[in-house]
Amino acid sequence: MNLIEIYINQVIKNLPVAEREEVKKDLNADILNMLPDDYTENDIKKVLSQLGDPEILADEYRDAKRYLIGPKLYDGYLKLLRIVLPIVAVIGAVIFILESVFDSGSINFVDLFAGSLANLVNAAFTAFAAITIIFAVFERNNVASPFKKKQWAVDDLKTSHIIAKPISKGEGIVSIIFSIIFFMILYFSPQLIGWYYTDNGIVMNIPLFNLDVLSRIMPLIILSLLFAVITSTLKIISGYWNIKLAFVNFLNNMFSAIVWIMIFANQNIFNASIFEKLSSVLDISIIRITGLFGIGIKVLIAFIMIGLVADSVSGFRKSVRK
């Protein structure tokens, strides 16, 4: 192979297959026309160095995109990474910790730390790869950024976040993480919530909940947690309060209020043996225990309701705040 062929091959190897033959033909003619009639190897070298680095020349020939994610999508890409990566990373670590605690029961802190760190990094990288691939596909197919609203107009300024209060991202992330931990414990190992005591050196545990009753209302709990995760995600994406968001927040709070009341309204949800245990430990009659327990639950529900109402109201106030 002579120098010209080698040069042309280096140019076209970086081009789409469909283009290669044509560019090869064009470039070959162009190079030959730049050479004098009786050319020497030196003449060839002179012409080729005039054309310069084959990769740069290939770049000029190629009009396809040479980047994974272009400027139009880049902001949305970064935004999504910043939201999703921390969540996924923490969830990865938490799942590992919960799994190892549930599986083995005994806890080795070094293993737990190393394992959760590895899972954290692993989950973060997986999420990073997935988001990058999705955005690269968007880029190739000219899909608009999921975060970009249609066309910007001056009037947007009036309705935009400038007048509304920002929502802290950390709050949303913490809420999502707790929802997931809560779900995992309630769904996979509700028996772990209970009264622990040692009997002859063996750790015993009386579950707080009546597992049959709990599993019957489980679909509602899952729905409620799902709703909470969606609401938090919407808050994180928006970053600022607005009326629609405040309304979703309100619905979410209503829904959790209903679920909380359904959980605690009947005492059947609780395991009767835990009352017996409390009664024997505290030396109070079972009737008094259940009575006190009932009052405690009512107070708890009252606090939860006040919290939910306050949160809903503050959502609306923050969305109209000047």
Binding site: D26, L27, A29, N33, G52, L57, E60, Y61
Partner: peptide, 28 residues
């Protein structure tokens, strides 16, 4: 006109353009 003839022409007329810019441009 063919590629190199344009390169030469522009060079003579003070509006020189590199061959490695012109050839891909013509194709585009």
């Amino acid at each position: 006109k063919y590629g190199y003839s344009l390169v030469e022409f522009f060079e003579k007329n003070g509006a020189s353009i590199e061959a490695n810019t012109l050839y891909p441009l013509l194709r585009r």
